[in-house]
Write a protein that binds this DNA or RNA. Structure first.
Lengths: 169, 169
DNA sequence: CGTGAAAAGCACCCGAC
DNA sequence: GTCGGGTGCTTTTCACG
């Protein structure tokens, strides 16, 4: 009824292919990982059943949707009681502009990644956030990203690809 | 030959559905946004052609893949000349552990989001990074995430859903 | 934009090897 | 694990209103 969580190298290859592009037939994926349709399909089913494949989604181009401002907000809360923390989390999570919330070790309690159309909108968001969480925030600092150098959702699951020696050197 | 970048409310609904789950038939999506198959399909094609839908991917569960450590690394580079910056970017981008690189305004030059199996692995990564970029780094600070409170790839594209009044208040 | 429908491809599920 | 095959859903493409 339940599977062990054994993931071999072929499973990892399948995952790596899928986390980069799900627009491929199972036969295609199979040939990329050295498997024929049937077993490849079975493995994918299993990986989905195990929850290792969480979901399949479309990634959109933020800049083409008027969402050019990314900000990281570091927050130190003033009240560390459980109910206060819980309230902070659920309230902050409600904002669709807040894509990620990480609880941190050390200096800050939380880091939020926020995406918005303009810096102006950030100001509005910022006030609404402080208002809504109804928890005293000790320190809130905003850091704005100007440019995205790299952005991927693909996890490093293949045994770190050996860096090839540059041919041109 | 080319389309204007006009996205109406129905397009946004389609995008919102797709950025949460691509495992649905076009008929399903259509019914969710109030469209029948054919026009819904045509809109999706257009959104793909325009590059607003960048790609379709599988999202994996990092914790089930032995990738429980997330770190944010803030970096200030010592040499701001173009070739040095360029070298830093391309070299840092090569690391599969580095999921995101943002160029920042203000205090830090860059923020990296790094995913790794253990804190031990972070140490190895850290040294390799400093070694590889071969650019003097003025200041490198590591911030570790202990817990993920929220994590989504879904952009806030629907006109901010009005916060409903809580019924229980 | 809608309907209806046809063609092709694919996911999905066999059983045999 | 492989292969071949079959069924039904879906995508993709029509014609027509």
């Amino acid at each position: 009824m339940s599977d062990k969580l054994d993931i071999d190298q072929i499973d990892r290859k399948i995952l790596d292919v899928l986390q980069r592009d799900t627009n491929q037939s199972i036969a295609d994926i199979g040939s990329k990982v050295g498997l024929s349709q049937t077993p490849c399909w079975k493995r994918i089913q299993r990986l989905e059943r195990l929850g290792i494949i969480q979901k399949r989604v479309a990634l959109l181009d933020a800049s083409k949707l008027d969402l050019s401002v990314t900000a990281f907000v570091t927050i130190s809360v003033g009240d560390h009681s459980e109910p206060a923390l819980q309230r902070f989390r659920t309230e902050a999570s409600r904002f669709p502009e807040v894509l990620d919330i990480h609880r941190m070790a050390g200096e800050h309690d939380y880091i939020l990644r926020v995406v918005l159309p303009t810096v102006n909108a950030y100001d509005t968001f910022y006030r609404k956030l402080i208002d809504t969480v109804s928890v005293p925030l000790k320190k809130v600092t905003s850091h704005f990203a100007i440019e995205s150098v790299k952005a991927t959702t693909a996890l490093p699951i293949i045994a770190a690809p050996e860096r090839r020696l540059e041919a041109a050197e």
